[in-house]
Structures are given as structure tokens and as C-alpha cells.
Amino acid sequence: MTPLTASTTAPGDPVLLGAVDLAREVLLEQVDSADVGAATGAVAEDEHVVTHYFTCLRAGYVGWTWSVTVARAVGSDKVTVDEVVLLPGEDAIVAPEWVPYKDRIRPGDLSPGDLLPVEEDDPRLVPTYSFGDDPLDADAKAQIRQVAKDLGLGRVRALSPEGIDLAAQRWYDGDGGPDVPLAQSAPAKCYSCGFLMRLSGHLAETFGVCANGNANDDGRVVAFGHGCGAHSEAQLSRKQQPLPPADHAHDTLTPDELESL
């Protein structure tokens, strides 16, 4: 729901604009009088449609506004009420936009024992071997699984081209991509790092896995254009090198000389 902007009195049907008392009367028939404050204005929605606004005083609804829409037929002075609605204003606290459960899950959300099954028609996955473009019914899908098991193929389904593209874009845009601050300030890129373990398959020319135990990305997929200060060929500049220790000072005073000081 889009928050309501501050209402102002606008040009419109004078009869409807003057129906403030009627709008309040109808509003009080539906809500407690203690919840209704002063009229804050009216807006002409159409030639013969006007909405009146009243401050909402109900506890927990700070910044909300009562909205009463009135109308009349052409040539008639009789005012009728279309609707009574409670709307959020600019300063109102509203619930965030609803997101489906499966879209709310993020890496790290799963706990031991949790299951996250994929849908049968997940576009990121395709049968390990192709059966053409004809749609498969439930029985055919079960047969695919059984045949794959009998043939010892291991995986019934594998990543589809769409699934590969989605993963690649997600990794490229994530913390292991080339545009994060860590990579921008790195002395060199991951493609030239000795700690990079290259992938095989479709993504072999774009991504690898970091194997530097001292790096932030150890064990994670990184783009070739990523980088960090733990690059295998990183060298400290002369200014960054630690200062050599000072020469040892030898105390040559004898006990007698020390007492005479």
C-alpha cells in the first residue's frame, strides 16, 4: 500500500466539498468518536467525486488518515457515500511488502535438519539426459528418476542453462565479484593468484575457488576480476615494510663507574 500524501483542498464539486459534516457523520457510524480528529482537507477525485480526510487518533495508528469518499449524480443535490477507508500517511508505520517464503530464504538461513525442496518445474534444473521438448507428466518424471538410478547416473537433474546463468550473475554481483571495495583496492586480480583453484565446465573461464586460508574468501567462489590484499604475488612497498630493528646498545659501565655517576 502506497502511503497517502498530505491532503489539500482542491477545486471540485462545491456541494461535495461542503459535505464535511456528512462525511464525519458517516465515519462516526463505523468508528469510535475518540478515534476521529479534525478534518484535514478534501481532494476532488472526479467531477462529481470528492474524498474528505480526517486525522486518525486511534492508538497505534500515528500518521494514518480516515478517508471518506462522497459523490452525487449530475443534476442531483443528494450526496451519497462511496466508501470509508483508513489510509497510511507519509509518517505512518506500515508493514513491509509481502515476500513469498521461498524468496525470503538467504544463504545461511538453513539449520541442521532443515529441508528446502525444489519444485518439479524449477527452471534452474533439467533432466540429466534430454527427453525432447514435450512436457512430462508426473509418471514420466518418476520414470526418469528410476532410469537414472538404474543407469547409475547419480544425479537425476543437472543445472539448466538458465540455472547456470542465474548462479553466474549472482556470484558476479556478490561479495566475490569485481565491483566490491575489497577488489577495487586489491594489488592484483584473482585470475593471476596462485591460490585460485579453477573450476571446470561452463564457468571455468569466469570463476574459481579461493584456497588461501588467510584470505576473506577462502573456500568461496570468486570471479577472475575479484581480488584482495592476500594475492599470492602481493608485495609490500618500501614505505609499508617494517622498520629494521635498531642496533643493540652495549652497557660498558663497571659497577664502580656507575656508583660514581
Rank of each mutant, 00 (worst) to 15 (best):
P100G: 09
I164H: 03
D91H: 08
L166Q: 08
R155G: 04
P178L: 04
A142S: 07
V99I: 15
D114E: 13
D103G: 06
L115A: 14
R155D: 06
Q169D: 14
L125F: 15
A138K: 09
A158C: 12
S111V: 11
E120L: 14
G176W: 05
A183F: 02
K78W: 04
L110R: 14
P107C: 03
G113C: 01
A167I: 15
R106M: 14
A142K: 10
R155S: 08
V85S: 02
D114Y: 08
A158E: 12
K149P: 03
R106I: 09
A167P: 03
L159N: 08
P181T: 10
V79W: 08
A92D: 03
S130E: 01
F131V: 03
A95D: 14
V180T: 12
R145K: 11
Q169L: 12
Q146W: 10
Q184V: 11
E90Q: 01
D114S: 14
A95V: 12
V94M: 03
A167L: 15
D133N: 03
G163I: 00
V85Q: 04
L86C: 00
D165S: 15
Y101N: 13
G163N: 01
P112D: 01
P181A: 09
D109W: 13
L151I: 04
L86M: 00
Y101M: 12
L115I: 09
D137H: 05
